[in-house]
Design a protein around this nucleic acid. Sequence first.
RNA 1: GGCGGUGUAGCUCAGUUGGUUAGAGCAUCCGGCUCAUACCCGGAGCGCCGGGGUUCGAAUCCCUGCACCGCCA
Length: 508
Amino acid sequence: MRAFYITTPIYYVNDVPHIGHAYTTCAADVLARFHRMMGEAVLFSTGTDEHGQKIAKAAQEMGLAPQELVDRVVVRFKDLWEKMHISYDVFIRTTDREHEETVQEFFMLLQKKGYIYKGEYEGWYCVPCETFWPESQLEGRLVCPDCGRPLERLKEESYFFALSRFSESLLAHLEKHPDFIMPESRFNEIYSFVKSGLKDQSISRLGVRWGIPVPGDPHHTIYVWFDALVNYLTVAGFGRDQERFELFWSEAHHLVGKDILRFHAVLWPSMLLAAGLPLPRRVFAHGWWTVNGEKMSKSKGNVVDPLEVIRKFGVDRFRYFLLREVSFGLDGDFSEKAFIERSNADLSDNFGNLIHRTLSMVWRYRNGRVSRPSGYEDREWEELLAEVRERFVSSMERFAFSQALSEVWRLVHFGNRYLDQKAPWRMAKDSNLREELDRVLYRLLDCGRILAVFILPFMPETAQRLLQFLGMENTSGKCTLIPLLDWGKGPEVFSIRQPEPLFPRLEG
RNA sequence: GGCGGUGUAGCUCAGUUGGUUAGAGCAUCCGGCUCAUACCCGGAGCGCCGGGGUUCGAAUCCCUGCACCGCCA
């Protein structure tokens, strides 16, 4: 059985979930649902990153133990994923006992292989915040980006990971696997970065209490990124479930925002090479959302709350917009105007209305029942469908969601054109054309059935509703649906429900 | 500064290895339909950043100028 393992990053638990989190997770969900539909064994994980100085500090300010704080705020994410119909298999938290054990085990493995050594870390340090800041974040000024106070040059004892020893093998892997980092522009960036040579990476901190201790040297705490990245192994059952690990690990696909690509495309693969483990199949860096053309920020107060969007417009409109509006990998802009236009044009006018006019005629002219007529096949339909299906699947394999959807919409357009050309409302007036009318209606109903399957990964709720209207709600319970994307797999009789619009037009 | 990328219709973007009249959606205009959620269908206009070169032929390859973007621990 083919397997597919898809991950989102684990989100920093102290953040309030915003459209960026929703975006990554939604994309991962679509992939998970698609691969389940293909009949594959799927493992889909998301979760939260709960360690670090910031959490400890926030907890202290609120008079809570760190664990109490994270237990409280993790709910925000779980709640959002429920409302977005995210079908994750595992929700991992870095404070899970088995994760903490896996991190320590992995640390010891690298130690044993000789890739970890003790040295001295030197950098710019903010004493009140107890944080080292990399120069890239300082923009030339030697003040703390968080509190604004002056930084000090400080040295401390630290464990290092011998990242520099993996430049060569990582380059070789990149050359052999041009789709390891996607999109291509990111591949090029990473490639030239690795080519310029890698430096060893500090992987422990002193004086951070809220984190995983270095095995055998508990004054040191394992660096948050080292801790966080290992989550992908924990989920896959590394060191505790051999069967699961072998099935899924080599099929891992990581979805990340472009801001954290380097950790996933350089540090992480090197850690795995050091451990002697296979590398993931792919790391895909997607873009960011602006809002009304501006960068999202707390200070501007323009952060989009996904819960608000769902409450106002519904979950499937939101999911559709996120994945259709921009091509995955590029930046996109979120605005209510664009959202409403996209939703009305694609979902209400084209898709929803095609379904509705079809169902209305079946309801009106045939009392809601159409049996499969003879001569139901149609070459034009079949040729288009075959092409759409092929391109849909190959787009999905490249994570080209927007393209995959526009392929499906070729069927929608064809359906509307077909309807206009055949004009069943005229046939209904002539009892001699009864058989021809049935053929047309059946073809349209079957087109609806096929559309329901195509959109299932993107809009599971709508797909389900559509199947209910078509009187075949049980279909989506089957695990392998792609074979159903065939002309001729429709039921003997469509017995529909009284239609109502799937997506009422939005005013705006 | 170094490396990489982008510049195509009013707007947002597709354009595989150079090959027929350069595509899509939205917007605009004209026509049709009336089953449908003022929807749908047909048609029209409008375009390859500037300059030079290679070629029978360039959005595509090369050089150059301009503008913008990304990465550089």
